[in-house]
Write a protein that binds this DNA or RNA. Structure first.
Lengths: 137, 137
DNA sequence: GTAACTGCAAAATATTTGCATCCTT
DNA sequence: AAGGATGCAAATATTTTGCAGTTAC
């Protein structure tokens, strides 16, 4: 909880109940959370709108990033230290387990460089691997 | 148009107006289309539900595949010949242009293999590069 | 003729917004 | 005290579903 508060302070965000608790939820898990997970957890304490607004605030500040999934469900995960506002560096591989459904950030695995056709300029690269995770294999 | 009909026949799908026209739209473009593009184009001729159902049918049959985007908008693109039902092989890189917004399949660029942590088994890999495309650079 | 496909309407789900009130600083 | 954050309600967007009528083969 203190860690969450520290992160909020670092990002010049006021310390509110929803921000602290939602951020703490991310800190506790090492995998990505969907909005629906938030809703399940916080429905009774916080309003939908507050949860959505808190998530967008975190994304703007570079505290979390969104992970594109093939079924187009918004998933969010903590950014690592290198992320700053308007400048994300989540250039690691994301893994989605088809069995348990958990989305994990494989922080250690860097995305290999690809050579694009000439004329193309890359600004950001995302890589999503799906299959079976450690526990489910 | 004839090409669309042939593809439908190959996949044992009955030839209907919506399937033919929607598939033809994909064949005409070499970039990915969002549902909203379909809607703009076909709103007056086909029902929403028909468009959605047609797209799911195409995905099931391996005619098109969905591309995960960071803003979680469903994008669809034609699968190449190697795709068959329940067994997609769209292991190429997708490119999203931040300027013109077009999503292109870079068929020629294969996704490099990554070494996953032990215990993880990959079934499918997706790679999305965003930046500036040929025309916008 | 029959099974599959479509349109329509409604439901379910997901996300956003305005505004009055409350809380953080 | 002042500005930002929240809750509530409603609006908007997105996707799915049941069912009756229509069409492809």
């Amino acid at each position: 909880m203190q860690q969450a508060i520290d992160i909020l302070k670092t990002n010049n965000l006021s310390i509110t109940d929803s921000r602290t608790k939602i951020l703490a939820a991310f800190l506790k898990k090492n995998y990505a959370l969907a909005y629906s997970d938030m809703e399940k957890k916080f429905k009774d304490i916080f309003d939908r709108a507050t949860i959505y607004r808190t998530l967008s605030t975190f994304i703007e500040k570079g505290i979390i990033h969104s992970i594109p999934t093939s079924d187009n469900i918004s998933m969010y995960a903590l950014c690592k230290n290198e992320c700053t506002e308007h400048h994300h560096h989540d250039e690691h591989v994301h893994f989605i387990c088809n069995d348990c459904g958990e989305t994990t950030c494989l922080d250690k695995i860097t995305i290999p460089k690809v050579k694009l056709p000439k004329g193309y300029k890359a600004a950001d690269v995302k890589m999503i691997v799906s299959g079976q995770c450690e526990q489910c294999n």
